[in-house]
């Protein structure tokens, strides 16, 4: 039995896959696969970092709990992807999260965007969740069994994130005059960063059937967006897309601050165990 098969039997999509399990894997991803895992892991990590801020600040206590659940799911995905990526270079999830410099991160600009008000956070959640759902629901068929297994757990969780954001898009879009204005503003602030999600990179060619080609997700994403926004009586913002560059390590101005906060303690005590 080949090594790839061995891990495929150990990690089955039906079981809850934990980062701790991935750390014990004998298989090491190749460099391209690890780079790809960084993309997905960094997106989830930075999003979780942003969402974590809401806990104790949400519009209602029930929503504190809901946003915390989403943040916890994302941090779980981040840990799994980063642990797997780190296997390629003998680095742990924490080495990667806490001791990489800004240009070494691979997150997209979208997840780096500020929380703003609740409508802006929901707009960002809406885009991320729809995108991640399209992505993970295809990544479950990856020829890399570990990525497929991570995606299999993640897609179920992200399905709920999708639902959560849609419920709020409907309510804010059709609630009061104020909420409608805020929702429209939130979507408008978010939309420039949509395009980057669907930009192909040379890495995708290298990956073959390990990864999912971002450009192929655009049409189903747009279709899903249309359905929801139409129901909420909202329109897709007509704003120019931003060029992005996160996958190449060229980030928004926000990431530096995010990492400063994320990494401050770990870097103050390099080599320490927590």
């Amino acid at each position: 039995m080949s090594e790839a098969n061995a891990s495929a039997t150990r990690i089955t999509p039906g079981n809850a896959l934990r980062p701790e399990d991935i750390a014990l894997l004998e298989t090491k991803p190749g460099d391209a696969v690890a780079q790809y895992a960084l993309w997905l892991g960094d997106d989830a990590l930075i999003l979780a970092q942003r969402l974590g801020w809401w806990i104790s600040r949400a519009p209602e206590l029930e929503e504190d709990v809901a946003l915390a659940n989403i943040a916890l799911d994302q941090i779980g995905h981040a840990r799994s992807f980063l642990t797997y990526a780190g296997r390629a270079w003998d680095r742990t999830e924490d080495d990667l999260a806490y001791f990489r410099r800004e240009p070494e991160f691979r997150s997209v600009h979208l997840v780096e965007q500020p929380n703003g008000d609740f409508a802006r956070t929901i707009a960002r959640q809406f885009v991320v969740a729809l995108y991640q759902w399209e992505l993970y629901s295809r990544l479950v068929d990856s020829s890399d069994p570990t990525l497929a297994a991570i995606a299999a757990k993640a897609v179920k969780e992200v399905d709920y994130h999708r639902d959560h954001s849609i419920q709020w898009i409907l309510r804010l879009g059709q609630g009061t005059e104020e909420s409608r204005h805020r929702m429209i503003a939130g979507l408008k602030l978010t939309w420039p960063y949509v395009e980057e999600l669907f930009t192909d990179h040379p890495l995708v060619d290298e990956l073959g059937d390990v990864g999912v080609r971002p450009s192929t997700l655009r049409a189903p994403f747009d279709a899903a967006v249309q359905v929801v926004l139409a129901e909420a009586d909202l329109e897709v913002p007509q704003v120019p897309g931003s060029v992005g560059g996160g996958r190449l390590g060229r980030h928004s101005e926000h990431l530096g601050y995010i990492l400063a906060e994320l990494q401050v303690l770990a870097r103050e005590y390099p080599g320490a165990s927590w």
Partner: peptide, 18 residues
Amino acid sequence: ITRAPSLKRKAVLMAKVQ
């Protein structure tokens, strides 16, 4: 939460505050 020194601790702290 945003400064927790490891990702595991970050998750645990989030779950606790939640």
